[in-house]
Nucleic acid binder design. Structure first.
Ligand code: FES
Ligand code: FES
Lengths: 141, 141
DNA sequence: TACATACCTGACTAAAATGGTCAAGTTTTG
DNA sequence: CAAAACTTGACCATTTTAGTCAGGTATGTA
């Protein structure tokens, strides 16, 4: 089970953004430099964050991105959903009665994987961007 | 975040095994047929389970595999560890002070990923093979 | 109005991981 | 001795990941 860089970067970038956007729009270039993430890759990520109304963009010189919601209302779930980082513990279709690989019924461990998926998603639902900001301030020396 | 088939198959196969091994050693061929998992792939998986002393092998005709421990003492953690299915929320080395991609320090969201990793691993540590057997009996019609 | 800054879009790709297969054994029981 | 079943290691097609690259378009400022 691995968390992909895309998901990790999305959260990193938003935390960075949240710390500065009250002053000015934050350019991807700045985030790229501060967080060491490729600018081109950030652009892909922010395009999705924007489509999902997590950020707003401001074009032109001195432009950049701004949060579109209160940091308290941006949960990890929302961020991950926006960048297509989803938790998948099985291959079979959730809504179908069929099992993995097109088998007629669900397998003997199916319930377990459902539980696991819920367990992980709960973590994401309970963590907001704001939690990360506070946590970060606390641990800053 | 995806759970790989290897990890899923390992657990499925062991649950299947646990239901029959009190009578006879269970051959991989039987597990393969019952669970719809490629025999060749199962062989790779059981080779690892054996190295980690989760199962014992009995060679020859009427041979097969048997659990090497009490189902209560086989946690999901042990199974996953055996087949190299590990939870990885970061790229950077746990024990190093350096961050991802060789950066000099850990990133601003590092704590979060640690928490996530612990959250997931807790689930695996608290689930034993025995839990799965009971659960399965309960839900069987 | 030019120009620099910064967003925007889509195509492309190298490398790694995944999910196996294939081949050639060895061991043991009936 | 034949068949069943474990053992080992190499091999491989496909998919996913983690980007890069090449072109735009919009807008504030000198
Ligand atoms: S996980 Fe898909 S059938 Fe059980
Ligand atoms: S996750 Fe590796 S440095 Fe933060």
């Amino acid at each position: 089970m691995k968390l992909t860089s895309k998901g990790r970067y999305a959260v990193m970038a938003l935390v960075d953004l949240a710390r500065f956007d009250s002053i000015n729009p934050v350019s991807l270039r700045d985030i790229s430099l501060r967080q060491g993430i490729s600018l081109d890759y950030l652009e892909q990520i922010f395009s999705k964050l924007k489509k999902n109304e997590i950020v707003k963009s401001i074009r032109g010189t001195q432009g950049g991105y701004v949060l579109n919601k209160n940091p308290n209302d941006i949960k990890l779930t929302n961020i991950f959903h926006a960048v297509d980082e989803k938790v998948k513990t099985v291959q079979c279709n959730k809504d179908s009665k069929r099992g993995c690989n097109g088998k007629a019924t669900k397998c003997i461990t199916h319930n377990l994987w459902d539980e696991l998926e819920i367990h992980i998603n709960t973590f994401f639902e309970n963590k907001s961007l704001n939690d990360l900001l506070n946590k970060n301030k606390e641990t800053r020396v």
